[in-house]
């Protein structure tokens, strides 16, 4: 019984022998891992280890040379990014990819793009208060308002995002990803550039997203405190190759991981 359950959970998201090269460089070399539904799975590694490249392969910005990405039992390797979005995989970026000349509200509404069914014609009859288009608009705005509340973004609602502080922009990007109503959320260094207090809030929010929205999270993060605090499992990679995978406590004390982060000499001392 237990074994069967485990099997089903393991079928949620798999990356199998993923490999991609750029020129002669193997940016990702035979990486495999399994993410259980509802868990937080983190990928750690030094700069340039290939973490973001893995994300880019998962959501279709890159096509891997070999290996497969399996999502809910379906092979999604090499699908276009917009198709992958429609399957319920959202992401954020290390360097923030927002629509900078739009307001927070408009950015979040674009996160709902795949859920909006209004065509040009029904949109043209928008002025009727009870039209289908008007009702839809109200529904989507309601969803977005809830995300704004969740992430405390009220103050930024009608401001152009390009001029907002870095930490706020990161949150808006997270909000936009949530607006897509994903089942799997890829977060690429969400805490980068945040101060201690913002990081603390972020940890709460990520846990909320996991617990209350039931969203599975795949996380790239440099801040070890954040990683150790919220991850269910951690994969450490270096030079595109997996070093080790396990629970946070095991990773923390793994000699290979320490070596990758600190270098040989420091260990020897």
């Amino acid at each position: 019984m237990d074994a069967v359950e485990k099997q089903v959970e393991g079928d949620f998201f798999n990356v199998d022998s993923l490999t991609i090269s750029f020129g002669g460089l193997r940016a990702v070399d035979n990486v495999s891992f399994t993410v259980n539904r509802g868990s937080i799975f983190s990928i750690i590694g030094p700069n340039g280890a290939g973490k973001t490249t893995i994300f880019n392969c998962i959501n279709g910005l890159y096509t891997p040379n070999s290996g497969r990405v399996i999502y809910k039992g379906e092979d999604i390797t090499g699908l276009k990014p917009h198709k992958i979005a429609r399957k319920g995989i959202a992401r954020t970026f290390q360097n923030i990819e927002l629509f900078s000349r739009m307001t927070t509200m408009e950015n979040l509404m674009l996160g709902r793009h795949i859920h909006i069914n209004t065509g040009v014609l029904s949109g043209a009859t928008f002025f009727r208060r009870n039209s289908r288009a008007a009702k839809e608009e109200v529904k989507h705005r309601d969803r977005v308002e809830r995300i704004i509340d969740l992430l405390d973004l009220q103050f930024a609602r009608n401001q152009f995002v390009g001029g907002l502080p870095y930490g706020t922009q990161k949150l808006i990007e997270l909000g936009r990803a949530l607006a897509l109503e994903p089942e799997l959320l890829l977060l690429d260094e969400p805490s980068a550039g945040m101060n201690t207090e913002e990081k603390q809030d972020l940890i709460f929010w990520i846990k909320d997203i996991q617990d209350e929205l039931g969203i599975t999270i795949l996380l790239i993060e440099h801040d070890m405190r954040v990683v150790m605090d919220i991850s269910d499992r951690i994969l450490a990679i270096n030079f595109g190759k997996p070093i080790t995978e396990g629970a946070p406590e095991a990773i923390q004390n793994d000699p290979e991981v320490l070596k990758a982060y600190l270098g040989e000499e420091e260990i020897a001392q």
Binding site: N59, H82, A90, F99, M102, L110, H113, I114
Partner: peptide, 17 residues
Amino acid sequence: KATQQNMVAARINGIRA
């Protein structure tokens, strides 16, 4: 408009660029 401002962000939000 979104695609014009940020093509990558547009694509990952389900827009067929």
